[in-house]
Computed example of a mutant assay.
Amino acid sequence: LEPTRELAAQVVEQFEKYGRHTGQRVLLVHGGVGYEKQRRGLQEGVDIVVATPGRLLDFMQDGTARLDDVEVLILDEVDRMLDMGFLPDVRRIVERTPKSRQTLFFSATMPPQIKTLADFALKDPVSIEIGIRFSPAETVSHFMYPVAGDQREELLLAILKQTHFNSMMIFTRTKMQADQLYGAIRQTGEYKVAVMHSDISQKDREKALKGFRDGEFEVIVATDLAARGLDISGVTHVINFMVPENSEDYVHRIGRTGRAQKEGDAFTLFSAEELPYVASIERLINQKIPRRKLGGFSYKYTTVLDEEDKARAILHGRKKKRR
């Protein structure tokens, strides 16, 4: 089970590559496309099904998919499934598999809801932790760019202009922001840019991802959908248009660059309101991220530019008043 279509497709691609001479039949099952081809595949019988929860449940409910003979169940990116509200579906799927199965459970984090699901799905599990928790790649240089909220887009475009990069991922919090930025970058006429979020059709998302991997696009603007798990190597720069609200997402997002000991840069734009998120990221990764101002940029005055403590105090005062 995978949280998104892209991850499911990526896993199938690898199974087909590694399992080429094994005769194993692999089937991709996900929403956003027609049912018939997938239904036929299930009816003909397969060895491995890689699925997103919703579509698999549809096939279970109409009797096309029966899980009575499942020997191995793999739950991948479970923390992402939690974010997307899939845990109840995952639980229903687990309940329909034999008790004698082997279960593999992958998650970057272990909050209480995931721990509960792990206790439910796993029997006497062996726990394997890889990498130091929450440490971003050492080959990544991080910088925080303070800016007034209404100059954010202008600053991002100026950073693009002054930065030498081969491939850049820009993360936004919302689909609307992603569309807006994509439009603004495209309008400059200087970059080949693609956009990726859940409202874009499956076909166009695949095209954007493939184009970015192949170097046809040098910039991709994406929501968190693309931040986790997708295998995109060679990204030289990551920009967070806003500070991620969830500090763990910061580590995932900047994990796109500096892979395999290659060097990469991660820039984050922030305004005064986002200072609490900045602090929680610095606590998590246990390091202070250097602040940087862009030379030659005409900044509007904002306390966060030179007086972070003052900005924090004002913010704190505002919060108290609201209470």
Rank of each mutant, 00 (worst) to 15 (best):
L7R: 10
V12R: 07
Q14L: 07
F15N: 02
H21L: 15
T22G: 10
H30R: 12
G31I: 14
G34R: 15
L56W: 05
F59S: 09
A65S: 13
A65Y: 02
L67E: 05
L75C: 01
L75G: 01
E77L: 00
M84L: 11
G85K: 12
F86A: 02
F86T: 00
P88Y: 08
D89G: 07
V90P: 02
R91W: 10
P98C: 13
K99C: 01
S107F: 03
A108W: 04
L117E: 06
A121R: 06
A121C: 11
V126W: 04
I132Y: 12
I132P: 14
F134A: 14
S135V: 09
H142K: 04
P146L: 03
V147Y: 04
Q151I: 04
E154P: 02
E154W: 04
L157H: 07
Q162D: 13
M168H: 12
G189T: 08
V195N: 07
D204E: 14
A208F: 11
F212I: 05
R213A: 13
V219I: 15
V219G: 04
A222I: 05
A226F: 09
A227L: 00
G229I: 01
L230R: 02
D231H: 13
D231Y: 01
G234D: 09
V238N: 03
S247C: 02
S247F: 00
E263P: 02
D265K: 13
D265S: 11
L269F: 06
F270Y: 15
A272I: 00
P276V: 01
A279C: 00
S280A: 05
P290T: 10
P290Y: 12
G296C: 07
T302L: 01
T303E: 10
V304Q: 08
V304A: 07
E307Q: 09
D309F: 00
I314Q: 11
K319S: 10
K319Q: 14
